[in-house]
């Protein structure tokens, strides 16, 4: 398979930091729009929704790194941590706006929502589950947890599924935009159980090919 021209190693760190900057641009842009009247007449809801959708997009991007490497030979593994952490930041912004600007710190209402409204229960659970992943998204934790790290980070599959469900349950009808996001998440999750047999088959048919890492 054709590989993209490799980025020289000395630019790796800079490209990752650029990704963080680029990744925060939608949040900054929409925040500016919301604050200056550019998001229409219900800016809180609009901002909340658009940030939630970007969180899902970043989760989709995170999940796409492995299949992209497996199937297209594009190795963007070095960007996966940034994508995952950006997703976490977006989920955090999404929740903060809901708590602060939508419900104005009415904790009784927030508690009631989390207990009684399944889509909020699920969304909140996803936020909680993301916290250990975000806290262990560093080299020290990877060394420290060794094989436990991979196991822990498999939680992203559950979080992605929860995020998709949260989205579907929050909208009045599942129209094109929710459908596309949810379909991509389903596709990327469905790839995971297929991966081992697929890789085995690929290795079998191309014995000289490079070894696929078991790190999904």
């Amino acid at each position: 398979m054709m590989a993209l021209p490799a980025l020289p190693r000395r630019y790796h760190a800079a490209s990752i930091w650029s990704l963080y900057l680029l990744g925060l641009c939608p949040a900054a842009w929409y925040f500016y729009q919301a604050a200056t009247g550019g998001l229409g007449f219900n800016p809180v809801k609009e901002f909340e929704h658009v940030i939630g959708i970007w969180a899902l997009r970043l989760i989709i991007a995170t999940l796409a790194v492995t299949p992209l490497r497996d199937l297209a030979g594009i190795n963007w593994m070095r960007y996966r941590r940034a994508l995952g952490l950006l997703a976490f930041y977006y989920v955090l912004i999404h929740f903060t706006v809901y708590l602060l600007l939508d419900l104005q710190l009415n904790f009784a209402a927030v508690g009631g929502d989390i207990i009684r409204r399944p889509y909020i229960t699920i969304g909140f659970a996803c936020l909680l589950l993301l916290i250990p992943l975000a806290l262990t998204s560093n080299n020290w934790s990877i060394r420290r947890l060794s094989s436990g790290w991979s196991k822990l980070h498999k939680l992203i599959y559950l979080i992605a599924a929860g995020g998709a469900l949260h989205y579907v349950l929050a909208v009045k009808s599942v129209t094109f935009v929710p459908f596309i996001h949810v379909a991509l998440i389903c596709l990327l999750l469905a790839y995971r159980p297929l991966r081992k047999p697929l890789m085995k088959w690929k290795r079998g048919s191309k014995p000289t090919g490079r070894q696929a890492s078991s790190n999904a």
């Binding site: 604050a35 800016p43 809801k45 929502d113 399944p118 889509y119």
Partner: peptide, 19 residues
């Protein structure tokens, strides 16, 4: 799936003061 106890009056409060 959501509460009907409260409502947001469109056009009031903007981004930071919506009540």
């Amino acid at each position: 799936r959501w509460s009907q106890a409260t409502e947001q009056r469109i056009g009031e409060g903007g981004f930071f003061g919506a009540k």
